[in-house]
Amino acid sequence: MSRCKEIQDLLQAEYFDRESGPKEEQSVQEHLKQCSACGTLEKKLQAQRLLFQGAKPKPVPAHLWGNIRDAIIAQRLEEETPVPGILERLKNLVFLRRPAMVLAASVFSVVLVVAALVNANLQNQSALRKLSAAEGIAGYSLSAKNGYTIDDLGTGIEEYFL
């Protein structure tokens, strides 16, 4: 039985693949003449091999070389394009024209100028209002000093006729 196991090990590998030495080959052949179980295994293995022998190689698709050649050329082009150094990348970062950045900077500058102008205008108006209010009070005080009693300051029109 252990002899059968030994022979079946060889049958399923070296002997079957013609990788065994002449001594092993001879001992397997002698055993196969006497043992029907190992002989059956050999026949099954031969039948299995027939399945593989029927497997014909498929032709390689014709377009495949074209795809590979294109991929190689693309890779070469990529390798040939020089990689910019640190200084060049820094220069590009600072000086490279970026339309969106330029537009944003222009809009921001315009907004700053307009905001400054509006602010200055508002401050002027406020100063003028304070000045006219001070002049009005001074005017009323002057009238009181001249003997007039003002009970009702009234509206602007009334003040005009007074």
Partner: peptide
């Protein structure tokens, strides 16, 4: 290429995958 494609086809069992493997191998 015949060896590469046919081994790829037997292992992956799919012609599209075998083509992809063949291209990868040659790259």
């Amino acid at each position: 290429s015949s060896f590469v494609y046919n081994v790829a086809l037997r292992v992956t069992r799919n012609s599209a995958n075998a083509e992809e493997v063949t291209q990868d191998v040659f790259m």
